[in-house]
């Protein structure tokens, strides 16, 4: 009763504040339980020899020191950034072209937007399996087409060679994610008033001038958002490598998250996996900060 009467006694201003607090409580609780607490636990674990089961021991910075001599960790970092650098440009270029194509509200355009966006709603695991079958040397549709057109003399093992494995995985990921980038860029494109283009046309600007001086500058925020989401997604890539190549051939496609997963759950070294996660978190924060800085609004 006391608390109830005290709430009733609050001024309008105080009650407004309390209401606001109540509104954000679920979100704060959610973030605390599913982000802050696990993050703190990960930090604590990274200072321990923490097997998945069995005895734990505090070992200070040993896990972090071990990182320097872990050849696969460095190889995985290198691979992950190479993958990110290779997969981001096609996603953006293609996403931008598709967004330009479906920008205007003409008849049946919804059908095309849906088609381009459709792969996004398929789970990455499912799409990876789908690609494994399409790329198969005996039953795959790609080899069938290439053989029928006499482009290759015999069925190719796309996932069996390091170079082609990387390329076909990039192809599959571009197919899978380009729709999402398209939707983001489409929203940015449609926010630009047509009047700007019309007046530029009056001044005699061609397509590329309009693109360079109107479209891209006005889409800075959208591009920043899409780029950051895309880069974070690529750095954290796991499913496609786990399913399509299982890290092979010759361990050439082990991404950094894959290596963290392996250490934590296959080698049972949770502490070491945590240390790698913290380092990766630091790298991602730095990378995202740099992107924000480069793409910040300058007036």
């Amino acid at each position: 009763m006391i608390s109830q009467s005290s709430v009733l006694n609050l001024s309008w201003e105080q009650r407004r504040k309390l209401t606001g607090l109540l509104f954000i409580t679920p979100t704060v609780a959610f973030v605390a339980i599913f982000f802050i607490v696990p993050l703190l636990m990960t930090i604590v674990m990274s200072f321990h020899d923490w097997p998945l089961f069995g005895e734990r021991a505090f070992i200070g910075l040993e896990n972090y020191q071990e990182l320097g001599s872990d050849r696969q960790y460095l190889k995985s970092l290198d691979f992950t950034f190479r993958y990110t650098a290779l997969v981001t440009p096609p996603i953006f270029l293609l996403g931008f072209i598709l967004a330009s194509l479906v920008r205007h509200n003409i008849r049946f355009i919804g059908i095309f937007r849906t088609i381009f966006f459709l792969p996004v709603v398929i789970g990455l695991g499912v799409s990876s399996l789908l690609w494994v079958w399409m790329l198969d040397d005996r039953i795959g549709v790609f080899n069938k087409i290439l053989l029928d057109l006499n482009i290759v003399p015999k069925a190719q093992l796309f996932l069996g060679r390091p170079n082609t494995a990387m390329n076909v995985i990039i192809l599959s990921v571009v197919w899978k994610t380009v729709g999402f980038t398209m939707i983001l860029l489409l929203a940015g494109l449609q926010a630009i008033p047509d009047e700007l283009y019309e007046s530029a046309e009056v001044d005699g600007a061609g397509y590329f001038r309009k693109l360079l001086y109107i479209t891209l500058p006005l889409m800075r925020r959208t591009i920043a958002l899409a780029l950051i989401l895309s880069v974070i997604g690529s750095v954290l890539a796991f499913d496609q490598f786990y399913i399509m190549t299982r890290g092979g051939p010759r361990n050439s496609t082990i991404s950094i998250v894959y290596w963290i997963f392996n250490n934590s759950f296959t080698y049972f070294k949770m502490g070491y996996g945590s240390a790698m996660s913290i380092v990766l978190l630091g790298i991602l924060v730095a990378l995202t900060g740099a992107q924000f800085y480069v793409l910040r609004e300058r007036y």
Binding site: P38, T42, F238, I260, F261
Partner: peptide
Amino acid sequence: MSVRKAMV
């Protein structure tokens, strides 16, 4: 990290 969270 997100993978591990999702796993748990």
